[in-house]
Design a protein around this nucleic acid. Structure first.
Lengths: 255, 255
DNA sequence: GAGCTCTACTCTGGATCCAATAACATATTA
DNA sequence: TAATATGTTATTGGATCCAGAGTAGAGCTC
């Protein structure tokens, strides 16, 4: 089991640096969704990898009946967070470094395909304006040369906006669905967050590079260079490895 | 809704040509898995796209209680076959031509990544022998220059073996899982199968090209040429469009 | 005749109950 | 002492029941 801080792949749910900065665990208050609670608990390490989960125990733990837990187990199994332990319940899945690298490659490949399709079908003026707006606002956040706590939140929301805009504009949800399923993999656990005082500095460098990459991607999209857009987007997926908190893994060399 | 025969993306469950040839619907006898039955029914068009499904009705239809149906609905929703119809149950999802193309691209991209990783990490002699064995047996099937009904079955099993061997050898199930989820999309329905007397001829040409592509892929894998293996595998994913039954769609030009 | 309201029905979500099964532990016999 | 048989327990899977919410339709009013 890899034990590292890894917030980047989860730009949809920035819980690592943001949670650390605000000193508040983003625990969902409404227990409406058992699935969400279980995801959270697994991410937090409350159910560590390898732990065997039984419907009844989890149900009591959550204060609900077995039925919603059963549904949640199926869902989480499909997402890859749980695996069947024979007839003896489910087990929290452990992830290796290879798994993490593969998930990054999957992300890069899928977003790359989306970028290529978008470049080939051409940007509408409205879409182009939307992307440029994301870029401008991201630029504004990074302009002052350093980060404050809120800046990370703002920028990661813009980042999310940038990516979802691209994914949502290719006229099919198939790629986005595949991507969303991939993103459920929990490669961060709250107790593994190791941030030093230089965290914001490091984060700034990362965001700066990401911002530049975004600009280059939009450029390729505008010029209809599908292959280049795809290549750039794939490289972009590794930014967490190159400039982030993942220290023990080497990003693949690809150009 | 696209209404075409499209068996290739489902090399794990060859139901189109094979089912036609054997004149037997591959209806699952054991009703153990409600999910499988529902998938089958949706593929067969028994529940056409847009149809609203209610738990109770489907449960009666299947002769089981609501509980397993509810589980199945969640599963199928995650797989992308069903979508929520507000608070009024689920709806069978309709797929556009773009969806199909995207699914093919996703398949190509993911298998491409797998091929690249495998080439980069190097083939073990055992794995190499396994792949070569697949190739040889596939070659033997196609050697006589024409196809009989059983040949299609045999070759598609070998095809499946070839692909799963590659996917299963990269040391992580993440890519394989993403691929498996993508493959659940039902792009074939039994009533849309339009096969003429030249079907076997056409199929032979397709299989022949696929066989050649497999050989080229193994060659690239053996020589450790990751980028080439990836490119070949991605192109391979479009064989259904180039030589198969999909007539109305143009495969992307990519080289 | 049109629009609003109320009621009944449909459908989902959760809880609980019952059956089946696999694993584990214990006892018995060769 | 070891192997097999048997009983117990833990756990899943399915069925049914109950509550809540949303929708549609009928009826009433202006």
């Amino acid at each position: 089991m890899v034990n590292i801080c890894f917030g980047w792949i989860h730009w949809r749910q920035q819980y690592s640096l943001k949670a650390f900065l605000t000193r508040g665990r983003a625990v969902s208050k409404n227990n409406t969704s058992v699935v969400a609670s279980l995801r959270q608990w697994i991410r937090e390490g409350r159910y560590p990898a390898g732990e065997r989960l039984a419907e009844l125990h989890v149900a009591e733990h959550l204060g609900v009946s077995r039925t919603p837990v059963r549904l949640a187990f199926r869902t989480l199994e499909q997402e890859g967070l749980l695996e069947r332990a024979g007839q003896r319940g489910y087990r929290v899945r452990a992830f290796t470094e290879t798994d993490i690298l593969c998930a990054l490659e999957v992300r890069g490949a899928l977003e790359g395909v989306a970028a290529r399709r978008l470049a080939e079908q051409g940007l509408s003026t409205a879409l182009e304006a939307q992307l440029i707006d994301c870029l401008d606002r991201g630029h504004a956040v990074l302009e002052k040369g350093f980060l404050e706590a809120d800046d990370v939140t703002v920028w990661s929301e813009l980042n999310e906006c940038f990516h979802t805009t691209i994914i949502g504009s290719i006229g099919s949800s198939v790629i986005g669905d595949a991507l969303a399923r991939n993103d459920h993999l929990p490669f961060a656990s709250a107790d593994s967050i190791i941030l030093d005082t230089q965290a914001l500095d490091r984060e700034y460098r990362k965001l700066h590079v990401a911002q530049t990459q975004h600009q280059t991607i939009v450029q390729a999209l505008r010029q209809g260079e599908g292959a280049r857009a795809e290549m750039l987007m794939r490289e972009h997926a590794y930014i967490g490895l190159r400039y982030g908190e993942l220290l023990s893994l080497d990003p693949p060399d690809r150009r």
